[in-house]
Design a protein around this nucleic acid. Structure first.
Lengths: 104, 104
DNA sequence: TTAGTATTTAAGACATCACTTAATCTCTTA
DNA sequence: TAAGAGATTAAGTGATGTCTTAAATACTAA
């Protein structure tokens, strides 16, 4: 919980998550999308991984990073429910998406 | 967005929000629940207010703080939808709560 | 084995954050 | 008006976060 919110407090880290939401990327591919140094990006990736928001897998000399969406979703939704139990949980558009899925 | 996540990155500030989720409190009542100094709490309240997560109203010599649940809910839910558009948005229990409300 | 690429680790500089105490401001009430 | 309480502002200090460059590690391929 703490690590998740700490990880999300950085704009760069949120941007990394946004990239990974579209597709997996290697460390180098992620670093190429920012103007800061590779070690700096690597440190951000470590923070995200320690928060359980991304996973990494070494393939040869590359390290592939993937989004771990469940932890982010679960943490934020749980927190919203904890602090705002009576709040309208979602915007209409997302509610519409949800209706198309099988409710379990 | 940035201010919201920045505000939520502090355990003390999240705890303040949790208190305010139950009831409005004055600055002094909030400060009494923590071991840090009153000015420190006041600074945290400023951060929360600048993020739009709480509102304050001066009544006589007291300042009453209230949760502003909509901004928190909207920001976090929007963010979840942005990064995890295919994720199951809410836990079952909260989905149940939602079903009881009028969907608009 | 050697050179080159991908990535992380290490060390240190600099900025920002969170706290403290002291001072200030506002309001109440004797 | 003066004293006192509630709250914030100001100023300074120590801790934490984020960046850099340099070095180390791991893998690939000539």
């Amino acid at each position: 919980m703490q690590r998740v919110f700490e990880a999300l407090s950085s704009p760069i880290r949120r941007k990394i998550l946004a990239y990974l939401a579209h597709t997996d990327l290697t460390a180098g591919e992620i670093a190429a999308r920012f103007e800061i140094s590779k070690p700096a990006v690597s440190q951000h990736l470590t923070v995200l991984e320690n928060a359980g928001l991304v996973t990494s897998e070494k393939k040869g000399q590359y390290v592939h990073y993937s989004l771990a969406p469940e932890n982010l979703t679960n943490t934020l939704n749980s927190y919203v429910q904890e602090v705002c139990p009576v709040a309208k949980p979602l915007k209409n558009e997302s509610a519409a998406i949800r209706r198309k899925r099988a409710p379990d």
